[in-house]
Structures are given as structure tokens and as C-alpha cells.
Amino acid sequence: MHRNVDIKVAVLLGLIGASVFSVPLLTADRYMLRVLTFVGVNVIIVAGMALLFGYAGQVSLGHAAFYGIGAYASAHVVTVFGWPWVAGVAIAIVLTAAGGLLLALPSLRLRGHYLAMATLAFGEIMRVAFVEGKGVTGGPDGLSGIPFPSFLGIEVDSAGGNYWLVWSAAAAVLLIASNLVRSRAGRAMLALHGSEAGAMSCGMDLTGLKVRVFVISAAFAGLAGSLYAHVVGFISPSTFSLHVSVLLVAMAVLGGTRSLAGPVLAAVILTMIPFADAVIPGLSRSAVETIQEWQEDVYGLTIIAVMLFVPGGIAGALRRIAAKGSVR
């Protein structure tokens, strides 16, 4: 029976993957491809948020900072040092992982909400650093003219190419995340979320576990930052503010716990809201501008509505549907 379910899931994932990858073949609409590329970037970050929040039960209010560190680090080494793009990606991942480790080690030794507080402070410190560190970040004006990603001297400069690049990275990240949650490590994350005393009695090193998950989620955000910087070509501090950190938490909450699919869907929905005209034909420009003006309120109302009417978020709803299906 399990095998049957596995096959169904594999077919479903294959179909979703095929349709995601065929988008650039079906449309040449640059605006739509750009918005969907941006969705892919957020999917990469939210995969880490899902591990951290949905599985390990830890809250970070500072992931936009890792997103920013990845973006600035990658942009800097490529534009200033003239390093190849792949090196920029590597630097972004290594720096954010190291930053995550430095932040997580002291704050995760303590119980309670110290991680949330520490990440909140870290996010603010980095936001100021992005604005003030003009030598590296270009200050409030940001950095522009960041070159497109390139492989072996071939520049990926088309909207479709960027889309494929970002979604390939997203697929790799989701594969890693789904491998993790189905493993001993994933069980340990769920266990420490369920009962810390119980997890300790199973021989789990709670601090070590939390630090590892945090480092992975920081590195995913760093990778996303690097991709964003090179695909968009321009970065500035506002892209990596507290507002973005909160949006990422909103995606994790709306997506629900113990799930990757839920948070990914939430990332797709919440990223698309301000760019609804990219996928809904005929939606007027002024309607979209109204949505953008009320963006925060839309997010807030969405979260409140989910908490009131859809307990467990999208993942909870999916599980209820699956349970109904299997009872028959």
C-alpha cells in the first residue's frame, strides 16, 4: 500500500516538475517569467524556513539578513574582484552558513525565544550594515550592474534562462530538504519540536541539531540571495529588511508544520499577490497598484484567516484531504 502511495506521489511530483520547467517554452512574456523566477528564489528560502520552523520548531525573524549577505557577498566578489559567478554562489553559501553558525551557537544554547530575539537583532544590525557599509554595499542606493550568471563564459541572460537556472536550484534545494525530513535527522527535528525532554532521552544533542538546521536554512537563504542579485542585476537594502523576514515567517506559518509542500505553496501565493497581473490576464494596472499599497494588510489578513479557518495552514488542509481520500 505504501508503495502505491509512493508511486502516486512520484507521478504527481513529476507532473508538477514538468509543468514548472515547461513555462518558458509556453510563454515569452518577460514580466511573467521574471515574477515566476522571483517565486523560485523565495521557494529556496522557504525550504529552509520550513525545516527550521515547520520541522524543528525554531523561529527566525532575521532570515532576510542572510538573504542580503548572500546577495551582497556574491555581487561584491563578482563585480569588484572579477571572480566567476559560481565562486560568488559558493562564497554566498559559505558566508551565510558561517554567519548562521556564529549566531546560532550562543543563542540556541539558551532555551525559549532567545533565537527569535537574537535573529531579530541580527536582522536589524545587518540592515544598518547594508545601508552604512557603502564600500561594499553601495549604501542606500544599492549596487547595480551586477552581471548575469554565467557558466564557462556563457552568460545566462535571457528571462527563460534565468527562470530555468533559479528553478533548477530550487529543485535541488527541495530535493535536499525532502531527503533530510525523511531521514534520521528529520525525525530528530520533529522529535525536538514534540518534546525536548523526550528528544534528550533518545540521545539527541538538542543544541547540535538546532544549530545544524539553522545553518542549513541560513545557507539556503544565502544561495537565494546570490541568485537574486545576479538575475535581477540590482540590489538595495530595502530588499533585505525586517519586512521581508516577517514575510518569510508568514510563508512558513501559512504553509503549516511538518510539510515542505505547504510552505512552498504559501511562498508561491504570497510572492504572487503583489504581481497578480503577471498571471491573471486582464487584471488592470490600477487594481495591482491597489493590491501593492495594501500588501501588508493582505498578508496580515491572510494569516489571520488561515489561523481562524484553516488550522495547520496549507499543510494541515492537504493532510485532511489526504486522510479523507484514504478512508473512502
Binding site: S183, R184, L190, G198, R258
Partner: peptide
């Protein structure tokens, strides 16, 4: 101090954490 949302089998499997060794990297791959 059980893991309420996990199944009985998964609870026991969590106990085996102490005597197994696959870490994050091996699991990710």
C-alpha cells in the same frame, strides 16, 4: 514525554537515534 504528532513506530525509531549514525550530510544526499 512522547512525540505526540509522530506515529508509535516513528516514536520508537526516534529512540534509535542514540545507536545510529547517519548525519545531516549523508541524509541530504
Amino acid at each position: 514525554e512522547l512525540f505526540e504528532e509522530m506515529s508509535a513506530l516513528e516514536n520508537v525509531m526516534a529512540g534509535a537515534h542514540a545507536v545510529t549514525r547517519s548525519g545531516f550530510l549523508a541524509a541530504a544526499l
